[in-house]
Simulated scan of single mutants.
Amino acid sequence: MTSDGKRVTIAAIAREAGVSVPTVSRVLNGRTDVAPHTRELVERLLKQHGYRRRASRQQTGKAGLIDLVFNDLDSPWALELIRGVEDVAQAAGVGTVVSAVHRRSAATRQWLQNLRARACDGVIFVTSELTGTVHAELHRLNIPVVVVDPAGGADLEVPTIGATNWAGGRSATEHLTSLGHRRIGLVAGPRHLLCSRARLDGYRAAVEAAGGDLEDALVRPGDFRYESGFAGGVALLDLPKPPTAIFASSDTMALGVYEAARRRGLRVPDDLSVVGFDDLPESRWASPPMTTVRQPLPEMGALAARTALRLAQGQPIDTPRVELATELVVRDSTTRPGSAGGFGR
């Protein structure tokens, strides 16, 4: 225990010993791959601070669990991530608890209270900003944490899993410029998310490289939901000189753009080319099937789960920052501009 009565954490022991958290975990787990003098130092500090390990699932009699925490659960994007986490958890004999905190501090406090009452092998936060208070409490409980699509970038002291969003945004836009489009609209994602800003930067890089228009009016805000895609599509199509193509930063928003075009009497792709991002199942069954950037969501969830379980077992991870590759998937929602006589061309 510390002087103020709080339970000492593995991270605190690691800092005092000048070693990594996985090294302390290996000592606790009796691993042999630790230098003798390092083991002696860590064991002395553990004894000095009266460190007690969090009870294992065998000791508590509770099933091991992974907590998967979203801000919201109203998107098929979330279901794809859950599927990846579930595959790994089931194979490991571990359960999954899915929570939504809706960016409310009260909901976060309630989630933490519930977490303290059960055995948990690890926590996965999705598109969240891990606050110092929550991070400190998870350290105190000796629960490893992984963040998928971090809101704030690489300043987090936890492993992060993401996708190559900049490259994905660029490849989506380059596909449109390769077809001859120069006036390309964008319905962007939430500005506070790193993934949204990266897709926006990739879009701008591709438009600039092709000598296209980079007017502020061609970029409209969105929140990854259908309604914002529809609103952004309407605003873009109502411009005095509308774009010939629109890149939406999520498939769900791209479907909103489809509807905006339909209500303007326009056909996709003959009058307006549309590209999405994610490659959700809905994009394949859209009419027409949607050209999109595949984000490997199940693989991201699976890797996050494997990382959390490795940390819970005191095993090292290969790297704290992982970005899985995105891939352009060309279907039927894009074509050359002017193929049907031209709208706004």
Score class of each variant (00 low, 15 high):
168 G>W: 05
168 G>V: 03
169 G>A: 09
170 R>H: 09
170 R>C: 07
171 S>W: 04
171 S>C: 07
172 A>V: 05
173 T>E: 07
174 E>Q: 05
177 T>R: 07
177 T>F: 08
178 S>G: 09
179 L>C: 01
180 G>K: 00
182 R>W: 12
183 R>V: 15
184 I>W: 04
184 I>R: 04
185 G>D: 14
185 G>L: 14
187 V>C: 02
188 A>R: 10
189 G>M: 11
190 P>H: 11
194 L>A: 10
197 R>L: 14
202 G>K: 03
203 Y>C: 08
205 A>V: 05
205 A>F: 04
206 A>E: 03
207 V>C: 04
208 E>I: 10
208 E>M: 09
208 E>H: 11
210 A>P: 04
211 G>V: 10
211 G>K: 11
211 G>S: 08
212 G>V: 07
213 D>E: 15
213 D>Q: 15
214 L>P: 13
214 L>T: 14
216 D>Y: 10
218 L>Y: 13
218 L>I: 15
219 V>M: 07
220 R>F: 07
221 P>Q: 10
222 G>E: 02
222 G>V: 00
222 G>S: 02
223 D>I: 07
225 R>V: 09
229 G>I: 01
230 F>P: 02
231 A>V: 09
231 A>Q: 11
232 G>I: 08
234 V>K: 08
234 V>G: 11
235 A>G: 13
235 A>S: 14
236 L>S: 09
236 L>H: 06
237 L>T: 06
238 D>K: 13
239 L>M: 13
240 P>F: 15
241 K>H: 12
242 P>D: 14
243 P>E: 12
243 P>N: 14
245 A>N: 02
247 F>V: 07
247 F>A: 06
249 S>I: 12
253 M>N: 03
253 M>C: 06
254 A>I: 07
257 V>S: 02
257 V>G: 00
260 A>W: 00
261 A>D: 10
261 A>K: 08
262 R>Y: 15
263 R>G: 08
264 R>D: 11
264 R>I: 12
265 G>A: 12
266 L>W: 14
266 L>R: 14
268 V>N: 06
268 V>G: 03
268 V>L: 09
269 P>A: 08
271 D>E: 09
271 D>S: 08
272 L>R: 09
272 L>I: 13
273 S>H: 04
274 V>N: 06
274 V>Y: 02
274 V>G: 06
276 G>A: 03
276 G>D: 00
277 F>M: 06
278 D>E: 02
278 D>I: 02
281 P>Y: 04
283 S>I: 02
284 R>M: 08
285 W>I: 01
285 W>H: 04
285 W>M: 05
286 A>V: 10
288 P>M: 12
289 P>K: 03
289 P>V: 10
289 P>I: 06
292 T>N: 13
292 T>W: 03
293 V>L: 13
295 Q>P: 06
296 P>R: 00
296 P>S: 00
298 P>H: 11
298 P>V: 09
299 E>N: 02
299 E>V: 04
300 M>R: 01
300 M>V: 03
301 G>K: 01
302 A>M: 11
302 A>W: 04
302 A>Q: 04
303 L>H: 05
304 A>T: 01
305 A>L: 05
306 R>P: 11
306 R>M: 11
